[in-house]
Amino acid sequence: MDLKTYILRRLLHTIPIIIGIATLIFFIFNIVGGDPALTLLGKYAKAKQIASLRHEMGLDKSLFLQYIDLLKSIFTFDFGKSWHTKQNIITSLKESGWISFTLSFPPFIISCALSIIIAMVSAFYRGQFLDKTLVLISIILMSISILSYILLFQWFFAFKLDWFEIAGYDKGFPNFISYILLPGIIIIFLSIGSDIRLYRTILLDEINQDYIRTARAKGLSEVSVLFKHVLKNAMIPIVTNLITQLPFLFLGSLLIENFFAIPGLGNFIVTAINTSDFPVIKAVTILSAIVFVLFNLLTDIIYTILDPRVKL
């Protein structure tokens, strides 16, 4: 089988998943969720008002037709307008998703690089004091609540020391940079602990392999064993893991964006929740799921290219 057939076959496999996502979302919102028109207008709304709103949302159709509407929107990429802002959802998502990406991508790269280096150090000194200390520090970093990080860092670095902007955003390069510095640092702190532990486990898995013993028996130094033989093998799971994380960069961090008033996708979602904006939540959920499925596919393809053992 060549790569093309493989990709085609994997694409076909994603179809039941995408239908599954649509069904699940439909089940949650249209069946369990009750009547959104009632939620939106409150319990004192007049019957006529409710009826017209229901018509406007397409809720007066049968459940089957509503389901077809949902499936159609997936393939046409048309999720309609937000109830709250009355703007086209896709346009708003593109704009805010890009802002989220510019906020989360640099910390993502920095956190990766830092945690791989630290994990290498930890793996080099495995079982020794430095390794144990690094593991303990990463567990500590993982155990602090995200909200505590945000509040503490904002209060200390922005409020007390006045090093960064307290909150806010300004569109356009390079104005926005000063606003994303502190949120970026917080994102690094949030992810680095679990990253270090993950990469350390991956590296140690490799270090215990037979071919590493062979490399040592050749007379290679521990440093070149680690950087050549261990790292090249470990890069396969590491790169795979990194690619699966990419879609989440567009989604951004809900709390951080909302807290620092950065108009990214995360903030957009929080607003939608606070205003009971069903179509937006539905659209974001479905779209992010689809992006995730596609990135998974991409990961598998890259995996087959990276690992010479994988035969198609």
């Binding site: 699940l24 979302i25 799921a289 995730f292």
Partner: peptide, 23 residues
């Protein structure tokens, strides 16, 4: 397998929000 592939595809946070929102 289909059920859990579907659920993992939806970002955790979005699923969680949708559910709490509805429930």
């Amino acid at each position: 397998v289909w059920l859990y592939s579907t659920i993992t595809s939806i970002p955790n946070i979005m699923l969680l929000l949708s559910l709490t929102f509805i429930l």
